[in-house]
């Protein structure tokens, strides 16, 4: 059940905030690592569901592809001078950005899951 959700969003800001908080609670002995794992699994699920349900915005990303890599169905791109063009016609740029992309849920549904 829970394994059907990606865990890699745990590396995001909100995911790291959760992981760090759980770490603290484990260290202080308030919760067990197992319970923390359950929380993280719930996070995987809640985050993925919420994103699909509530996030509708789109964007276009342009840039210079510095590195690309496909391993175990995970694409990794390192894009230099990326520019995100948002719907609000606002642009966000950076020096370099790393993109970690797992196969999308549709692809999984049809495939290995």
């Amino acid at each position: 059940m829970a394994s059907a959700y990606y865990e890699f969003y745990r590396g995001s800001s909100i995911g790291m905030a959760l992981t760090d908080s759980l770490d603290e609670l484990i260290t202080s002995g308030a919760i067990t690592p197992q319970l923390a794992m359950k929380v993280l699994q719930q996070f995987d699920k809640s985050l993925a569901d919420t994103m699909v349900k509530q996030v509708k915005s789109k964007a276009i990303l342009k840039g210079h592809l510095h590195t690309y890599r496909l391993c175990d169905d995970v694409w990794t791109f390192i894009v230099k001078t990326p520019v995100f063009k948002m719907e609000s016609s606002e642009n966000v740029g950076a020096q370099k950005i790393k993109i970690i992309a797992c196969k999308s849920g549709d692809a999984i549904d049809g495939g290995k899951k």
Binding site: S13, I14, M51, A59, G63, H64, F77, A94
Partner: peptide
């Protein structure tokens, strides 16, 4: 996560 801020997208087309 760019420039210390978070953004979310449902869909993004990348052209590199």
């Amino acid at each position: 996560h760019v420039n210390g801020r978070d953004y979310l997208f449902a869909k993004c087309t990348g052209e590199f």
